[in-house]
Every structure is written in structure tokens, then in C-alpha cells.
Design a protein around this nucleic acid. Structure first.
Lengths: 138, 138
DNA sequence: ACCGGATGTTAGGAAACTTAACATATACCA
DNA sequence: TGGTATATGTTAAGTTTCCTAACATCCGGT
């Protein structure tokens, strides 16, 4: 089993994730509803989160603090560390007509720029992989 | 927060621990009943296990496979990585009259010897800190 | 002034967990 | 051989945690 597997292994119940991220259950579920995270489920349909999921939630929280909305964050969070099936869902969520002016790529670039900007003033923020850094010796 | 804290942080419900250790809930609870582990509890009294707890359970399982009984394992598992209050409980569990022939130290040495012996024939076994090695980059 | 996005709150039900009691298998010992 | 202790299984009844769905609220932008 490699590192990637370990980090995507479903381990945590929502209660623990609430404490780790300081998000409410409502928030966590809402982010899932908006395809920002995709935790596993137990046989009985209860959410089970991986390290990656928790990291991702911390990122989301971080970006929200900076004033981004979920749509922007969704674009920003690339799929490299998520389990989402590539383009399919994304196309559904953002039909062509709505984003005709900018391509995905362009928008993403702009957003990244904004965040970089914001970072200059931002408080001491959590960064990507914070949870991992929390638990993993490096 | 240091490594020790991380490893003793209560994170896992019993369901996940069952999968991670391949022990039944009954077994896990029985080991707790016998003071081999001391998981935290939620407000609502449900068990929450740390990395250390899970590691310890894997050790217990390992020793059981080698034919040791819980009393022996309890002696063997030193307190360095547990949360037990030092001598107190131990004295209660093994009153002087019962172990008059051997001191704790001697018994522990003998047991260690036995385990070392057993190891020569043992199958590929989990070792101490296995779970940590599982999740932590080293 | 309204609307949509994000979150809070509540209700009803299902899943997961709790302790306690009793059952079973196995090993050891008189 | 029967008795006893250890380790684990099984079951029951109760509690906690989580689920979805609906509706409420707050707030920033138009």
C-alpha cells in the first residue's frame, strides 16, 4: 500500500472531522452536496472521511475565509487530489452558456491570481496538506 | 503539537478500528476491560481510539497469536506508550501473593525471552508501530 | 427591496455504539 | 474425568451519533 492509498483511506467519522476542521456538519454536508468533497460511506450510509478529505476541507475553509465562493473553490481545487470523475460533473455544474466568456483554464488562472493577492494580507492561514503535515513526519 | 500528541490523539471509532485491526468489538472491549488499552470517550461515552491505541491492539493480536495470554501481554506491554497510571492498577491486578516467586522485572524478562524464542518460528508478523509505519512516512 | 448563496435549526428515522448477561470453546489441573 | 478460568461469541435493550429533508435566517450584490 502506497502513500496515496493511505491518504485516501476512509477513516474518520463526521464527528471527528468536525473537530479537526472546526466546521459544522451542515457545512461539511453542503460542500459534499456541491461536489467539493466525496467522502466514502459505510454500509449504513454514514460518511467516512480520508486524510485527503480532511485536508480538502481545510483548504475549502481557508478559501472561504478569503472571500471566495464555493463555485470558485471548486474550480480552484484541481482534481489531482480528489476522487471526482474528471470533466463530467464539472460540465454539469457549469454549463457552457454560463461561462462563455472565460475558459475553465482562464478562470482558474484568474482565481489563483486573486488568491495570491489575498495571501499578501491574509492572516496566518492553513495551507494545502495541513492535516497531513499535522500527522505525518516530514 | 508534537509527534507524541498526534499519536495519542483520539480519532477513530470502534468500527474503523475493527477493520484496521481485524479484531471484533468484543475483543477490543475485553482488552480494555483488562486494562490493556485505554481509549478516550466521546461526550456520549463512545470509544475514540488513537494511533497508539491501534498500534497497541495490533501488538496484542500479535502476542495472542504466539500463545501468550492477556496477563502476560499486559506485563509485556510497558507503559512507555500507554496512558496507564504507573504501578497502581498493576498492583491491583496482580496482588503480591500471586506472584511471590518472581518479581515483575524477572517475569517480564522471561516473557520477553519466550517471545524472542517464538519469533524464530513465527509467521510474518506485525511489529510494534506497524500502524504508524502504515500511515507515517519514514 | 429582492435574490441567491451559505449556514442554522429542527424533526423523524436509521445506523452505530454501549453495557450486561448468558453461551461456548478450549486449555489446564486436581 | 470433571471442574475451573480464559477468551470470545451472541443477544437484548437502551443511548448516541448520523442521516436526509424541509424550512428559517443572514448577508452581499444587483
Amino acid at each position: 500500500m502506497n502513500d496515496k492509498d493511505r491518504r485516501s483511506m476512509p477513516l474518520f467519522g463526521i464527528g471527528i472531522v468536525m473537530k479537526l476542521t472546526e466546521l459544522t456538519a451542515r457545512q461539511i454536508r453542503y460542500y459534499e452536496e456541491n461536489d467539493l468533497i466525496h467522502p466514502e460511506r459505510t454500509k449504513g450510509n454514514q460518511r467516512l472521511f480520508s486524510f485527503n478529505d480532511v485536508d480538502r476541507l481545510l483548504e475549502i475553509k481557508n478559501y472561504l475565509d478569503k472571500g471566495l465562493n464555493l463555485a470558485g473553490i471548486k474550480l480552484l481545487l484541481t482534481d489531482e487530489d480528489s476522487n471526482v470523475e474528471k470533466t463530467e460533473e464539472k460540465e454539469k455544474a457549469l454549463p457552457k452558456e454560463k461561462k462563455s466568456v472565460l475558459t475553465d483554464k482562464e478562470l482558474r488562472a484568474i482565481l489563483r491570481q486573486e488568491i495570491t493577492e489575498a495571501n499578501r494580507f491574509g492572516k496566518a492561514n492553513l495551507r494545502q496538506g495541513e492535516l497531513a503535515r499535522f500527522f505525518v513526519n516530514r
